[in-house]
Computed example of a mutant assay.
Amino acid sequence: MRKIIIWVTLLLVTVVSSQQVYAEMPRLDNQMTIQLSHDNQGQEATPFSVYEISREDYEEALNNKYEMSSEKTNEWLSEIRANKVREVVASSDQKAVFDLPKYSDSQGLNYYVILQSQPDKDELSTQVIYEALPIFLSFENVESDFFEINTKRVSHSSSIYFFKYSSGERQLPLEKAQFVLYRELLDGKREYLMNPKNDSWKSINQLTDAYQFESNKDGLVLIPYLELLPGTYYFEETKAPKGFKITKESQKIPLVVKSDSISGLVMTINAEVLETLKAGQLPQEVIAKGTPRVLNDSIKRPPKKDIPNEEQPKKNVFLPKTGEHMWQFSSVGLALIFIGIIIRKRGKENE
């Protein structure tokens, strides 16, 4: 009996001790294994940065749709001074596998941003061709300790654009301004773009024969996917919006195309570098900024002349003299009465 009591006591002590040790052990389920898949077009390595953010920051970012823009996300991370927790690399097999803590003592559930550190570039021209959109990561309602992510790439393509605005202190976008694009030959002649789809150029006599580019409601003149060789080209305004006139500057707007060993193909209008299209769209921040701008002066209408009031000749208006007319009528009446009395008197005498 005594041996049984001792055995049971040792068993209870062992169980209690094991529970204490288990409680003191670190949480094994705190680590999440992340598999990041990125189509890097066969490049050897694509780096990504991982930032830790709070729940409030996570909700703010989603409300502002920062996941649709790498530039906005980068600026926002700098503003909030987000902590970069690690760098990972998607190798030539297009995958990166790494661990992230699911919880922290300070805020509980962790939230992360995964941002591509360097965009994918063309091997020959080193021009940016693709970029992954930012990934905002939350482990809410995730029971597994394995999380797979596929990046969403957007293409970068060269684009030609500028904005048509009114001149003056309060500049506003102008719609329905029309432009043609031309290049100057060595003999001084001009060739105009006839069709941007097949890149056909021709010397013409009338500007209306060339392809006309038109500004939209944002004042934007956009020519996507037009491949130009390095050189200088010019836009010429052929039709100004209603109420505005074509200026000297808008008759020869320089478009310079350069090949850079680092940045690839670089295009400028009025010496301002143009952004690339992302997923076929011009970034919204570029449209909001509205540059580079080509300005139109409004047509100044001559002021209306004030016509002086000419003095009208005064008309002689004769008002009837009421008292005089009444006297005249009274005299006639008395005379008739008097004549009537005389005639009646004579008539009685004759009887």
Rank of each mutant, 00 (worst) to 15 (best):
V221F: 03
L222M: 14
L222H: 10
P224M: 06
P224K: 01
P224A: 05
P224L: 04
Y225H: 14
Y225T: 13
L226W: 03
E227R: 06
E227P: 03
L228M: 08
L228E: 02
T232G: 05
F235E: 01
F235R: 00
E236A: 04
E236L: 04
E237L: 08
E237W: 01
E237A: 13
T238I: 15
K239E: 15
A240F: 05
A240L: 06
P241A: 15
F244N: 02
F244Y: 15
K245W: 05
K245G: 14
K245I: 12
I246A: 10
E249R: 02
Q251V: 06
Q251F: 05
K252N: 10
K252F: 01
I253Y: 00
I253D: 00
I253W: 00
P254Y: 03
P254C: 04
P254G: 04
P254T: 02
L255S: 00
L255Y: 00
L255T: 00
L255G: 00
V256H: 02
V256L: 08
S259I: 11
S259A: 14
D260I: 08
S261Q: 12
I262H: 06
S263M: 10
S263R: 10
L265V: 14
L265F: 07
L265C: 07
V266T: 06
M267W: 01
T268S: 11
I269Y: 01
I269N: 01
E272D: 11
V273M: 11
V273L: 09
V273I: 14
L274D: 02
E275F: 15
T276A: 12
T276V: 10
K278E: 15
A279G: 13
A279S: 12
Q281D: 09
Q281N: 12
L282P: 01
P283C: 11
Q284W: 07
Q284Y: 09
V286T: 13
V286G: 03
I287S: 01
I287D: 01
K289C: 05
K289W: 15
G290C: 07
G290V: 09
G290E: 07
G290T: 08
G290H: 09
G290I: 08
T291N: 09
R293T: 12
R293Y: 04
R293A: 15
R293N: 08
V294R: 03
N296V: 09
D297S: 11
S298M: 09
S298A: 13
P302F: 02
P303K: 07
